[in-house]
């Protein structure tokens, strides 16, 4: 089955431009996954053994406490959900949950790590792409830290 996924993987914005060789390696770790609205993709604190490339739908990342859960970020088509698999101690930092019916590539983290370890060129390329995503998220968090829209009573 994996070989049928490769063309679709190649189209995903996160992987766009990767060499066929690299894609072939990744394809071995990938499968299609449908999540119904409300279904969890990942749970805070558990072993981060997967990551997802969203194709359709939307996924929200939650920071949850007993009293309430707050959405800290969302990811839509073309975006990556999950990088904890590449960073020790390989545990999810948030809850990830589909807010609508979502279609994603489901990549096996352990498999990816192995491929990246075996093939540093692939590993570097993959890490660069994850880093862009990380940088974007950091910008986002920084901007929101500024609370730029301001407290209405702040004046």
């Amino acid at each position: 089955m994996p070989s049928t996924l490769q063309p679709a993987l190649a189209e995903h914005p996160f992987l766009r431009g990767m060499t066929p060789e690299a894609l072939a390696l990744l394809t071995g770790c990938a499968k299609n996954h449908r999540f119904a609205a409300g279904e969890y993709l990942a749970t805070h604190g558990t072993q981060a053994d997967r990551c997802f490339l969203i194709r359709k739908g939307r996924v929200a990342l939650y920071a949850a406490s007993a009293a309430k859960s707050v959405i800290v970020n969302t990811a839509g088509p073309g975006e990556l959900v999950g990088w904890s698999w590449i960073i020790t101690p390989y545990r999810y930092r948030f809850d990830a949950r589909a807010t609508e019916d979502t279609l994603a590539f489901d990549l096996d983290g352990a498999c990816l790590r192995q491929k990246c370890d075996d093939n540093p060129a692939l590993g570097y390329e993959f890490l660069k792409r994850v880093s862009i995503e990380l940088g974007r998220r950091l910008d986002d968090v920084q901007l929101r830290l500024l609370d730029v829209y301001g407290e209405p009573d702040g004046g």
């Binding site: 914005p13 939307r58 929200a60 939650y62 949850a64 309430k68 859960s69 707050v70 959405i71 800290v72 970020n73 969302t74 839509g76 088509p77 073309g78 975006e79 807010t99 609508e100 974007r136 910008d139 986002d140 901007l143 929101r144 609370d147 730029v148 829209y149």
Partner: peptide
């Protein structure tokens, strides 16, 4: 639309407005 902060019931996007740009 995207929000800086949303409760769990929000179905839309969360993030600053630039996070809408990729799509």
């Amino acid at each position: 639309v995207t929000l800086d902060a949303a409760s769990g019931s929000w179905k839309g996007s969360v993030g600053v407005v630039t996070s809408l740009f990729p799509n």
